[in-house]
């Protein structure tokens, strides 16, 4: 039972991080209908900036720089590349993001060389005992941080003019434009927010607790869990992204424990396939993924 509780907490901790990633992914999709395959490279980029600035700025300062850099990179990708190809279809824009992903990822992996630095703070690898249950501090911090950020996001999404503009554009581009919604503001803010969330996520991923590995190509692979998470929740559903993230975290944690580490990755995709068969638009989505 204790093991189970522990697994659930750890699963939710991972899930919270996947939720941040999936949420960014879904925001971009909602605003632009583009599937952003460069999400993993945004994660790596944020992490890399933490690594190179930590010496001088300390962990907290470096974390801020990392998060902002990931946001800025996302904004630049949108402004400099995607927005220039305005008439291209979402499909070809998705291909463009694959190119961006490869370039950024390979460059960072090359720069990292053989060093695989952890970027967790002092809380990393100092398990916490609560009753008979051992919990990773990183996961607890991740749950708290993700809860705060996701709550803030939903408040803004629901009540602010930004949220109204965002939802209006997601639902009907032409009607939004005729209402005076500036399409480029919605689109670039979606990318900015997604980048910032990716920058936060990496602070938890490249840790001993979360992955047992520092910043590396592996970080990128872990970030790819945002795809099944978003697809499970429904590509165009923000609430779905959060649920999908948690589902992926739990499935990952439980199948690692009860089956095997190697099976965990397939388990996530198995769950995704089952969801797609039963509900082609994902748990909360309205658009069929197969259409994308």
């Amino acid at each position: 039972m204790d093991t189970f509780v522990q697994l659930v907490v750890n699963g939710l901790g991972k899930g919270a991080v996947f939720a941040l990633l999936a949420l960014g992914f879904v925001i971009i999709f909602k605003a632009t209908e583009v599937v952003n395959f460069a999400h993993g490279s945004l994660v790596l980029f944020g992490g890399y900036l933490v690594v190179v600035t930590r010496e001088t700025l300390g962990w907290a300062g470096a974390a801020v720089v990392g998060v902002l850099s990931a946001g800025l990179l996302a904004l630049l990708v949108e402004r400099l590349l995607l927005s220039r190809s305005r008439l291209a279809s979402p499909f070809s824009l998705a291909l463009l993001t694959i190119g961006v992903d490869v370039i950024i990822t390979e460059e960072i992996v090359r720069r990292l060389g053989v060093s695989l630095p952890f970027i967790g703070d002092a809380w990393d690898a100092q398990p916490l005992q609560v009753g008979g249950v051992t919990m990773f501090r990183t996961h607890l911090v991740a749950i708290v941080v993700a809860t705060v950020l996701i709550t803030l996001f939903f408040l803004a999404f629901r009540y602010s003019n930004w949220g109204i503009a965002m939802r209006a554009q997601a639902e009907n581009k032409e009607a939004a434009a005729l209402s005076g919604v500036r399409s480029w503001v919605v689109t670039s803010s979606a990318w900015l927010v997604a980048g910032l969330l990716a920058g936060v996520a990496v602070l938890f991923i490249a840790t001993q607790d979360f992955s047992g590995a520092g910043l590396s190509r592996g970080t990128h692979s872990i970030a790819l869990a945002a795809f099944p998470a978003a697809i499970i929740g429904g590509l165009d559903s923000t609430a779905g992204a959060v649920v999908g993230g948690l589902v992926v975290g739990l499935v990952d944690a439980l199948s690692t424990e009860y089956v095997s580490f190697a099976f965990a990755k397939s388990a996530v995709f198995l769950v995704m396939l089952v969801v797609l068969v039963v509900r082609p638009s994902g748990l909360f989505g309205t658009k069929e993924t197969t259409r994308v």
Binding site: N161, A165, E171, N172, A175, G180, V181
Partner: peptide
């Protein structure tokens, strides 16, 4: 626009708020 194109998934009030963005 032709065919009204209201934001069907948003509330009436939110539709009007969207219109006020301009």
């Amino acid at each position: 626009p032709e065919g009204r194109q209201i934001f069907a998934r948003m509330s009436v009030e939110e539709n009007l708020r969207a219109g006020g963005i301009g």
